[in-house]
Computed example of a mutant assay.
Amino acid sequence: MMGAFLKTAVTVQLKIELPSGVFQALRQAAMQSRTSAEQLAADCVSQSFETALRHRVLIERQEEIDQALLTIAEFVGALASASVAPPAEHFPVRDKR
């Protein structure tokens, strides 16, 4: 049920609990950035989600590339095992004198 809500919601309200030292650092960083602590925390969460999504996409692409390389290797192996050695006249022996 919650997954369906997240897919259709424009914004989602979350409650987070932070140790007081982390909140103080967040509040000071927000003041330096001229924004609210809430907005800075939301930006951090958003960036973390984006980073996780990019990481997941990269892992999926890496798995797809690995599978494609395996397919190519199997194809080359099948070609190599099916091929017949070329006639000797294609490889002339040179006199070493």
Rank of each mutant, 00 (worst) to 15 (best):
M2Q: 13
M2K: 15
A4C: 02
A4M: 04
F5Q: 04
F5R: 13
F5A: 04
K7L: 05
A9Q: 09
V10S: 13
T11D: 14
T11V: 07
V12S: 05
V12Q: 09
Q13H: 11
Q13V: 12
L14C: 12
L14H: 06
L14S: 12
K15F: 10
K15D: 08
K15S: 13
I16H: 11
L18C: 07
L18F: 13
L18A: 12
G21L: 13
V22Y: 08
V22N: 08
V22F: 06
Q24N: 15
L26K: 10
L26N: 11
R27C: 04
R27V: 02
Q28F: 04
Q28I: 15
Q28R: 09
A29R: 02
A29G: 01
M31F: 09
M31H: 10
Q32V: 04
Q32W: 04
Q32A: 15
S33T: 10
S33P: 00
R34K: 10
T35K: 08
S36L: 06
S36H: 13
A37V: 01
Q39E: 15
Q39A: 15
L40H: 06
L40A: 14
A42F: 11
D43I: 05
D43L: 11
D43K: 12
C44Q: 12
C44I: 11
Q47H: 03
S48D: 11
F49G: 01
E50N: 10
T51N: 05
T51E: 10
L53C: 06
L53P: 01
H55W: 09
R56L: 06
V57A: 09
L58G: 06
I59M: 11
E60S: 10
E60H: 13
R61D: 10
R61W: 08
Q62Y: 10
I65V: 14
I65M: 09
D66V: 01
A68L: 08
T71N: 06
T71W: 08
I72F: 06
A73W: 03
E74M: 14
F75Q: 14
G77H: 08
L79F: 09
A80E: 12
A80P: 01
S81K: 12
A82L: 08
V84G: 00
V84E: 08
A85Q: 15
P86V: 03
A88V: 01
A88N: 02
E89C: 01
E89M: 00
E89G: 01
E89P: 00
H90R: 07
H90P: 00
F91L: 02
F91H: 00
P92W: 02
P92T: 02
P92R: 00
P92G: 00
R94W: 00
R94K: 03
R94I: 00
D95C: 00
R97S: 09
